[in-house]
Design a protein around this nucleic acid. Sequence first.
DNA 1: CAACTAATGCTCAGGCGGAGTATATCCATG
DNA 2: CATGGATATACTCCGCCTGAGCATTAGTTG
Lengths: 335, 335
Amino acid sequence: MTSRPERALQPTSPREIDSDPSLGTVEGAAGPGIAADLIAVLVAVTAGEPRVLTLQDARALPSGPFELAHRSLQSGMRAWVERQAHHPLGYVEQLYTFADRDRSLGPDQRVISISYLGLTREQPTMEGDEASWQSWYVYFPWEDRRLGVPPSIEQVLLPNLRAFADAAPTFALRQQRANRIAVTFGLEGKPWNEELVLQRYELLYEAGLIPEARRANPELGPAPVQGRSMILDHRRILATGIARLRAKIKYHPVVFELVPDTFTLLQLQRCVEALAGRLMHKQNFRRLVTQQELVEETGEVSQETRGRPAKLFRFRREVLTERAIVGTKLPISRS
Amino acid sequence: MTSRPERALQPTSPREIDSDPSLGTVEGAAGPGIAADLIAVLVAVTAGEPRVLTLQDARALPSGPFELAHRSLQSGMRAWVERQAHHPLGYVEQLYTFADRDRSLGPDQRVISISYLGLTREQPTMEGDEASWQSWYVYFPWEDRRLGVPPSIEQVLLPNLRAFADAAPTFALRQQRANRIAVTFGLEGKPWNEELVLQRYELLYEAGLIPEARRANPELGPAPVQGRSMILDHRRILATGIARLRAKIKYHPVVFELVPDTFTLLQLQRCVEALAGRLMHKQNFRRLVTQQELVEETGEVSQETRGRPAKLFRFRREVLTERAIVGTKLPISRS
DNA sequence: CAACTAATGCTCAGGCGGAGTATATCCATG
DNA sequence: CATGGATATACTCCGCCTGAGCATTAGTTG
């Protein structure tokens, strides 16, 4: 780490995290102990791009200390994120908790980080606000396949990854690495799996191809791979959030938290495509949405300029209660 | 809460949790602050029953403080659970983190609880050990449908739940509750969904039908619903673990962590059935397992007594690397 | 040997998902 | 006003997966 980043969701109470271990991390706390940090991956989809709320020149996720006053972790999260985003959170889900030693403030201080995924609609950030919304593909360019496979994958990523695989000391390890590359990046006839965001990030990390992995070894020089990095492990947390969201939209109707109250089916499709980083088959997408009875017509039509006007739909909130998630893969006997 | 439970995975360092807030919760810690607790849902399948490791007369899950010495949460977990279970953990997964105020030790003390799911094979517990393995259906009798719908559901659960629904003040709320009961318990033609373990528990909790919900109101008398309860919210955590595992086995080959190294397909099936609480179609189960190439023959046959001898199989560990999880539900276009 | 139990092999029908064709309805433009 | 471009919407087709059941094999037990 080079800078001394200040992380705070509430700009009124920033605190430094990688210096001066004697600084209290919880109000009123003194001496050694454990502090808890809440980190938010706040997602919106605007103009066909999936975007995340960032701070510190787009290099940090919003985060803030968990305080004794908070009723629960989730309510603490909701409270300060809603204040920050100037908008209620539609959906909040816990991502992961970690307390790795390299995040600690000192030998007798430890930070536990609890990360959350939140869905909302983008609100304009304030003038002079250090918060800004960024396309998440700024951080993971290789995850966007809507316009086809990005050229940088073949030109930059794969050569570097292959070199990493070939650099393994034993044949078995070389095989293993090559196979892992093929699986995570969908090579050798294997399908691309858009959910493997974290696995791809970790592979690039282990291969030393991204800046985060080179912080400990500055002599390695600049990382060869595109994509903006973030402080600490925030990009890793973002990867976790993207992966979770990409999995979630397949079996739970959370997309509707990200589109306006009324929308056309194409708008909805573009939103899903933005999240998944892949294009859908239009006719089948509508079939899926309609025959699952996820939406109902409003009776209005869109005022778009080109083409046949599209009907406007709204989400049928009832589906949230009238049935649970579907989907089983076990050959359960009904008799 | 009635007793003053001692929770500790390592019997050498128990600590009291609902009394004397001045007690330090982290070694070396003093004064107000935050402490972290690790709670384990440790699962094995023995003799066709899914079992969990418990302490304190089977009323608590193993738990212990997160210590500064631990490298990470997960490694802390692994270390002390393996010591407790006298067996390496095959698979560990984080479940959930919470810090609700009603778990706090006092106004200026807060406990963050991080729960984990671990899979292993049952080892005999030590003589005089307070640890014991219990069938998880002891705590959730309504979750076992292998022998058909348990009679207690129709005889006890549903009448009480219907009374709860009818007691709602408004018509809309009555409808909503009745619908929720139907969805979670698979009534009115809706299918039983074995993954809704937590939702069912929470419904029973809200309906005031289980002891945990009545602790605050002792005048309500004994809870009418079967199933052993646990201290604090341990039964809730167990429900979370069961739900997660029931979902996981459908798309990730974790069952193999719970069966011996070599097994017959029926043994494997019985293990899955134990977890899911439902019976499988035998032929289709084999088809699923074999055509996914999850197993390979050992060449041996089982020495069981009755019926045609069954071939023994072993898990093909390669599948973990040779392909990732499958399954998509988005109409992704391949062109 | 007959009966029983369990393993294993195979078929069949319905449904769903991927893909493509066809038609409808708007706008812009000549 | 006709036409072409663009988009929305409807429908069809086919292969695969899945639930379900029948049939056969290979052991043990009485």
